[in-house]
């Protein structure tokens, strides 16, 4: 049995420990905000935080998650207060279809944790999520805006 928390809620998992986290989140926990895009860790649509670090949940086996704290897009906002990255995403009107954006946001939160004020070059080198609609220009702007917001918000 694997005990873990998802967005602060204690959960237990007794199934196949090879099953990826994404499948658990979408099917067992019914959290649909995290998306399936490729199943092989290539596109990042399934990005969540495991113990505060961004991981691609489609290739993260449940067996590796004993005691882990998982945060999904549904758990990013604190109560009704959106995370600075979510705010920046709205302010820059980033999304087109929106399918990849939960993953983009979760990846960005992690990026800004590691590099609080990234240059364009640092964004290019560290942000690798795929967006088929081509919202990258706005994602770049939103990352900068979120960095600014986080400074102001402390």
């Amino acid at each position: 049995m694997i005990a873990l928390t998802v967005n602060g809620n204690r959960m237990t998992f007794e199934g196949d420990d090879k099953m990826p986290l994404l499948w658990y989140l979408r099917e067992d926990v019914n959290l649909h905000g995290t998306k399936f895009g490729c199943g092989v860790g290539q596109c990042g649509a399934c990005t969540v935080h495991v113990d505060g670090q961004a991981f691609r949940s489609c290739v993260m086996p449940m067996g590796a998650l004993s005691g882990a704290e998982i945060t999904t897009i549904e758990g990013l906002a604190k109560m009704d207060e959106l995370h600075a990255v979510q705010k920046a995403w709205i302010e820059e009107d980033v999304a087109q279809c929106g399918y990849c954006q939960a993953g983009q946001i979760m990846a960005t939160v992690n990026l800004l944790k590691n590099i609080p004020n990234p240059t364009d070059k640092e964004i290019d080198e560290n942000h690798t999520n795929l967006c088929r609609c081509g919202t990258y220009d706005r994602i770049r702007k939103a990352i900068h805006r979120a960095a600014d917001l986080m400074k102001t918000e402390g």
């Binding site: 959290l31 897009i73 906002a77 959106l82 980033v94 929106g98």
Partner: peptide, 14 residues
């Protein structure tokens, strides 16, 4: 800006 943006960035949109 998009009216449904908040539902998108919070993962609520279906």
């Amino acid at each position: 800006s998009q009216k449904l943006a908040k539902d998108i960035v919070t993962g609520k949109i279906e």
